[in-house]
Amino acid sequence: MKLRSIISAFIILVSLQAVNAQNIDTGNSIVTFEVSNMAFKTVEGSFKGMKGAVKFDENNLSESSFQVCIDAATVNTENEDRDKHLKNEDFFEVETYPEICFTSTSIVKSTSGYTAKGMLKMHGVEKEVEIPFSVKDNTFEGTLVIDRYDYKVGGSGKFMVGREINLKIKSVVKSDSI
Rank of each mutant, 00 (worst) to 15 (best):
M1S: 10
M1V: 09
M1H: 12
L3W: 05
L3F: 10
L3K: 13
L3G: 02
L3N: 10
R4I: 12
R4D: 06
S5A: 11
S5T: 06
I7L: 13
S8L: 15
F10Y: 10
I11H: 00
L13P: 01
Q17L: 06
V19M: 10
N23M: 13
D25M: 06
S29I: 06
F33C: 11
E34L: 09
S36Y: 02
N37K: 12
T42Y: 14
V43T: 09
G45Q: 04
K48I: 09
K51A: 15
K51T: 15
G52T: 07
G52Q: 02
A53P: 00
A53Y: 11
V54Q: 07
K55F: 04
F56I: 03
N59Q: 11
N59W: 05
N60L: 04
N60P: 00
S64K: 07
F66H: 08
Q67W: 12
I70D: 00
A72F: 05
A73T: 11
V75R: 09
N76V: 11
T77N: 09
T77K: 03
E78M: 07
N79V: 01
N79W: 00
K84W: 01
K87D: 03
N88G: 00
E89S: 07
F92L: 07
F92I: 00
V94P: 04
E95W: 00
E99P: 01
E99S: 07
I100G: 01
F102N: 14
S104L: 09
S106A: 13
I107E: 02
I107L: 07
V108Q: 15
K109S: 08
S110L: 05
S110H: 11
S110D: 13
T115K: 14
T115P: 02
T115A: 14
K117G: 04
G118T: 11
M119D: 09
L120Q: 12
V125Q: 13
E126N: 08
E128Q: 14
E128V: 03
E128T: 13
V129F: 03
E130H: 06
I131T: 03
I131G: 00
F133T: 07
S134A: 10
K136Y: 06
N138V: 15
E141D: 14
G142M: 04
T143C: 02
L144H: 06
L144M: 10
V145N: 11
V145Q: 10
I146P: 07
R148W: 08
R148N: 01
Y149E: 10
Y149G: 05
D150S: 12
K152R: 15
V153M: 07
S156F: 02
K158S: 15
G162H: 04
E164V: 03
E164W: 05
I165M: 09
I165A: 08
L167V: 06
K170H: 01
K170F: 08
S171I: 15
V172A: 14
K174A: 11
D176T: 13
S177R: 12
I178R: 06
I178D: 02
